[in-house]
C-alpha cells in the first residue's frame, strides 16, 4: 500500500469518524449520564488524568435512568406514537397523490418527459423552509383557502386547518412528493408496455390490466418511495413546528424543545437514541428492498 492510497482512504475516513461516529458515541454517553446543574450540564465527565481508575469510575456512574424516565413520562411515548402515526398517514397520502402523477408522466410523450422530470425536481432544489412557509398564508384561519371557501359560501366559518395534524399532513405530502414520484416513475418507465397490450388482448379491461399488471410491477418503486418519505418524516422538525402548532406532538420537535428550552441534555440525548433505534427497522427494510431491486435489474 503506497502513501497516496493511504492518504486517499484516511482523509475521508478520519473525517467521518471524527464528525459522525464520535459525536454519535458522545450522544449515547450523555444519554446514560445524569443531569447536573453545571457546565456542561451533565454528569459524569470523563477525566483521563485520573488514569485507569478514573475511566472505571466513569463507566460505573453511567446508567439507564433517562431511558426509564422516557417510559414513565407519557409525553415521550405519546410523541413517539403520534410521530409514527403522522408519518404513516402522510406517507400513505403522498402515495395516493404521487402515484397518478408518476403514472401520467410515464405515459407522457417522450419529448415531454425531461421537462416533466425537471418540473418535479425543481421544488426539491428550492428551500424546504420556504416551501413549508408558503402554506402558512394559504391555510391560516384568515388565509386564502378560507377566504375562498367563505366567498363561495361552502362554509360559514373559517376552517381550522392551521395548527392541527391536517396541516402537518399537507406539509409532508407537499414537501416530500418528489421523493415519491421519482422512484415510482422510474419503475413505470422501465415497464414493458407490451405486457399491458397482452393483458388487454387476452380480454382484460384497461382498469383490470392496470390492477393486475401495472400496479404489482410498480411495487418496488412504491415501496422505495414510501420509505423515502416515511424515514425523514418521522424525525421531522420544521413542518410540525411551523404548521402543527402546540397540539401536534412529534418527536423531532420534542427533542428540540428538550434541548433548547428545557436544557435537559441527557434526556434530549436519550430521546435521540430511542428515535434512532426506531428508525433502524425501516432503514434496514429499505436497504433490503433496494438490494432486491438491484438484483432483479441484473
Amino acid at each position: 500500500m503506497n502513501l497516496r492510497r493511504l492518504t486517499l482512504i484516511l482523509v475521508p475516513y478520519l473525517w467521518l469518524m471524527g464528525f459522525f461516529l464520535v459525536p454519535f458515541l458522545i450522544v449515547v454517553k450523555i444519554a446514560l449520564s445524569d443531569t447536573a446543574i453545571a457546565i456542561p450540564p451533565y454528569w459524569p465527565v470523563l477525566d483521563l488524568s485520573a488514569g485507569w481508575t478514573g475511566i472505571k469510575e466513569f463507566f460505573s456512574e453511567l446508567d439507564f435512568e433517562n431511558f426509564v424516565f422516557l417510559t414513565e413520562d407519557s409525553l415521550y411515548w405519546k410523541s413517539y406514537l403520534s410521530s409514527l402515526q403522522i408519518a404513516s398517514i402522510s406517507t400513505f397520502l403522498t402515495l395516493l397523490v404521487g402515484y397518478p402523477i408518476a403514472y401520467a408522466m410515464a405515459q407522457a410523450p417522450d419529448e415531454w418527459r425531461p421537462t416533466l422530470m425537471m418540473l418535479v425536481i425543481l421544488p426539491f432544489w428550492t428551500s424546504f423552509l420556504i416551501r413549508v412557509y408558503s402554506w402558512v398564508g394559504i391555510i391560516a384561519n384568515e388565509g386564502l383557502l378560507n377566504q375562498f371557501l367563505l366567498w363561495t359560501g361552502l362554509i360559514s366559518e373559517p376552517l381550522q386547518i392551521m395548527n392541527t395534524p391536517t396541516a402537518v399532513y399537507i406539509g409532508i405530502v407537499y414537501t416530500y412528493l418528489p421523493f415519491m414520484i421519482l422512484p415510482i416513475y422510474a419503475t413505470l418507465e422501465k415497464m414493458d408496455g407490451s405486457l399491458i397490450e397482452a393483458a388487454v388482448d387476452l380480454g382484460c379491461s384497461r382498469g383490470k390490466a392496470f390492477w393486475l399488471v401495472t400496479l404489482p410491477l410498480s411495487r418496488p418503486g412504491m415501496i422505495a418511495g414510501c420509505f423515502l418519505v416515511f424515514i425523514p418524516a418521522l424525525g421531522e422538525f420544521v413542518i410540525p413546528s411551523l404548521l402543527g402548532g402546540s397540539q401536534t406532538l412529534m418527536i423531532g420537535k420534542v427533542l428540540w424543545e428538550e434541548f433548547f428550552s428545557n436544557r435537559d441534555w441527557p434526556v434530549a440525548a436519550a430521546v435521540a437514541v430511542v428515535l434512532l433505534m426506531i428508525l433502524v427497522i425501516p432503514i434496514m427494510l429499505f436497504q433490503r428492498n433496494q438490494e432486491r431491486q438491484e438484483e432483479a435489474g441484473r
Binding site: P12, F20, L21, P23, I26, A272, L275
Partner: peptide, 27 residues
Amino acid sequence: LFSGMIYAPLVMPEVITGLSLLLLFIA
C-alpha cells in the same frame, strides 16, 4: 464501517445530526 458512515448521514434525522455535532463541539 466506511460505507456505513457514508450512507448513515443521508437517513439520519437532522435533529440527531445537529445534536450530536453540538455535543462534540462542546466536548
